[in-house]
Design a protein around this nucleic acid. Structure first.
Lengths: 284, 284
DNA sequence: GGATTTTTGGAATAAATATTCCAAAAGAAC
DNA sequence: GTTCTTTTGGAATATTTATTCCAAAAATCC
């Protein structure tokens, strides 16, 4: 008896005493437990981590089938996480459940129904394109590549930013954020067709942005920098972009466009994150 | 007996034969039935209409309690809507719920958890800020104001675009889109501190963009145009913005920012929609 | 005001779902 | 290879939840 009491030091203490009270806590505990778990329970953890959102609307049997384990395994998994059982875990997610659609989707539909080609219909489409781009970025972002880009730029003396045509707004914003974060940066804007390639000094780095159809000047500057041994960071649409060949680190940004125009939402989100991260890294 | 057969023409045919197959159909049927329903069923209809989103994660008893009716009443209500019972109705909403978060929110959380201040955490935050901005724009966009802006700009000879500092990326992109759509436009970029205010000719219009803290030059140009009798269209954050005073039409764009930087997603979506709409209107 | 129809509430039942438990399998330790 | 521990799967059970049914209450009609 004494040896099986809850505080028995010999017992595997995988079973937490208290249930997570929020989705954040849930994730924290999941991450904690994740690493040393036997096979079946591991499957549960993986499946649940990837399908957290379905907990609120599924039964034990459904989730177990998805994870390809018997229901009892999933049951044990819930308990390891600290819940008394599946129902308690589900309650957490049912309460947190708040789909975006009650209002947003309806409203978007109304906008789009303003008549094809009407200003509000266009607005609806661009909002949608922006949202999809951001979601795609969230799903596809390569954290390692981002960290590498930050490292390269943080180590540079001066950051040379280049992006023309539709990438120009992004380049501008980058220059703005770099300035605010006190990062020495130069915007290569091609004003007056002046080419400032000799501003590139040893110790500097280039941040080049271009999307198909790739702009020649941007690629030329990147190539030039490369030849002179300066590191180049690229923001582009594909790993196969010509820019990627001259770059030391590549960030690909998915962007959904409607009609002929990019939403730029994802590109800008990535750009600010990059610039702010570089600014902080230098500050230290 | 013969009089109570399922096809009895005298029976109230409130009971639809086939169940709604989508959320839209569901709403349509609800609206249809809504009007002539006895008291308790009416309560069900009202409550369900206002809490559609909770169907997926509630039990009959919970919803019935919310509507303040006995469970059996809610049960009948489901059948009137054409479902075999509550479970069938719930299935519809549980399945429809897939697109909301499919994987995105999970992934976003992971990004943010990369450690406070890490590049990927920042990216997660900016993605979120962008998404919230777009949703807010969808909800708040004023279609009439947008249409009015389009009308004003479509009637202009040349569109003068001005936006500095953080609004500059937006101004650039507008200039780019106008060019692609063959709309005569001039970007006032303040390069060399050159002031091109005399480029404003009768028949032209100004499109000014600025957010708090409002940039002086932008307001000055708008004011100048106004004095000379040219129409001014404003993109800004508040109806109380100083820009609004000199403008004939105002577009307010909600933008959520994270830290010191705006996501610009909503602003850009609005800008492209505006420019494309103006382009089309002129083409006709 | 009585007859007829409709609506209602709740008790009874059916079905689905969660949860436990234990014998068997797998794995680790010796 | 044997023993001991951990993990597993599924059958048995408990619990919750949905659904039906019918008598009582309202409402409607004559």
């Amino acid at each position: 008896m004494d040896q099986t009491s809850p505080t028995d030091p010999a017992a595997p203490d995988r079973m937490a005493a208290t249930a997570p009270a929020s989705v954040e806590e849930f994730r924290a505990r999941l991450a904690l437990v994740m690493d040393d778990l036997p096979r079946r329970l591991r499957q549960c953890a993986d499946y649940i981590a990837a399908n957290t959102d379905r907990i609120a609307v599924s039964t034990v049997a459904e989730l177990a089938a998805g994870a390809d384990v018997p229901p009892s395994a999933l049951m044990r998994f819930c308990q390891i996480l600290g819940f008394s059982g599946f129902s308690e875990m589900q309650r957490l997610f049912r309460e947190a459940y708040a789909p975006g659609w009650p209002d947003y989707a309806t409203r978007l539909k109304n906008l789009k129904e303003g008549g094809a080609g009407s200003p509000s219909a266009l607005l609806g489409e661009f909002i949608e394109a922006g949202r999809l781009s951001l979601e795609a970025l969230a799903k596809s972002a390569d954290e390692a590549a981002l960290a590498q880009c930050v490292a390269v730029l943080a180590a540079a003396q001066t950051v040379h930013v280049i992006g023309l045509r539709r990438a120009f707004p992004v380049a501008c914003y980058l220059a703005y954020v770099f300035e605010k974060m006190s990062v020495p940066a130069m915007l290569h804007d091609s004003v007056g067709k002046l080419d400032h390639r000799f501003a590139l000094r040893p110790g500097d780095a280039v941040l080049a942005i271009t999307f198909a159809p790739y702009s020649e000047e941007t690629i030329a500057l990147a190539q030039d920098a490369r030849t002179r041994g300066l590191p180049v960071v690229a923001m582009t649409d594909q790993l196969t972009s010509p820019l990627a060949r001259f770059s030391d680190a590549v960030l690909t940004v998915p962007e959904v466009d409607f009609g002929a125009f990019r939403s730029l939402s994802a590109t800008i989100a990535m750009a600010i994150a990059l610039a702010v991260a570089v600014g902080s890294a230098r500050g230290e």
